[in-house]
Design a protein around this nucleic acid. Structure first.
Lengths: 141, 141
DNA sequence: GCAATTCTCAGTGGTAAACTCGGAATTCGC
DNA sequence: GCGAATTCCGAGTTTACCACTGAGAATTGC
């Protein structure tokens, strides 16, 4: 069971925008450098995030991306849904049309994942980063 | 986020063995028919399940597969681990070597999933199937 | 010995992930 | 207005894995 890098990259990119919230547009190049992500690939990920209303883009020189809402109002679930689609496993009924006795398990898994992802906001991640920084971890990613 | 069919098929196959626990070896053909799964493919899935000690095989005529332990002692997590590998998403640290502020989220997701999957046994699924049967659902899968 | 099985291994086709690239469109600073 | 910095868009590439098929060897009950 493997989570795609899309989601992981997206969360880190938006975390970077969250850190700089209120400081004007951030060009992708800086996001990519700060978070050590492939810039060209990141570009692909921004389209759904923009269309989904999580970020706003500013074109042209001195342009870049801005978080569209307050970091406390953006959950990790929001990001994952836009980049990876529906959260959690499909049930057998959804996948094949035929219900199975295990469907309840897959539904419970989905609920459990959703709960965690909806319970974490970009503001939480920023707080966590601050906490680590104060404790001497120099990783700001 | 898409769960492979390997895990889903495996759970249904072992559920079928659980239903018939104590009735001698069940040939794959019957498992495949009862659960409507491709037999040849199922064959592939049985190897890791056997090597992992969840089932025992009986070769030759009148042979088949037998659940190696009581259905109450086999969790869905056991099955998924053997067929799909480690449960849940990798952290950024595990995937890339560089820790990230989001690692805590991925770990929490992993714990949540694990908790659900370890909390469900084949015996639970059998009970659920009985319950459904009594309520008139004729699906025994 | 024959038929029913599992076991092993070698494919195969499709699909998606994880990028890369080139160029068009936009906008700021000068 | 020009040039540089950007986003935007679409296409292509490589790699890997998934889901599945098939053939034949090994094993065993009757």
């Amino acid at each position: 069971m493997h989570l795609s890098t899309r989601g992981r990259y997206g969360v880190r990119a938006l975390f970077e925008l969250a850190r700089r919230y209120g400081q004007g547009p951030v060009p992708l190049r800086e996001v990519a450098e700060a978070q050590n992500l492939p810039e060209n690939y990141l570009e692909q990920l921004m389209a759904p995030l923009r269309k989904g209303g999580l970020v706003q883009s500013v074109r042209g020189a001195q342009g870049g991306y801005v978080l569209a809402r307050d970091p406390a109002q953006v959950t990790v679930a929001d990001i994952i849904r836009l980049l990876d689609g529906p959260i959690g496993p499909e049930t057998d009924r959804e996948a094949t049309g035929t219900p199975s006795v295990a469907d309840g398990v897959w539904e419970a898994v989905r609920r459990a994942i959703t709960e965690v992802l909806e319970g974490t906001t970009l503001a939480d991640l920023c707080r966590e980063a601050d906490r680590r920084a104060r404790q001497g971890y120099m990783f700001y990613i």
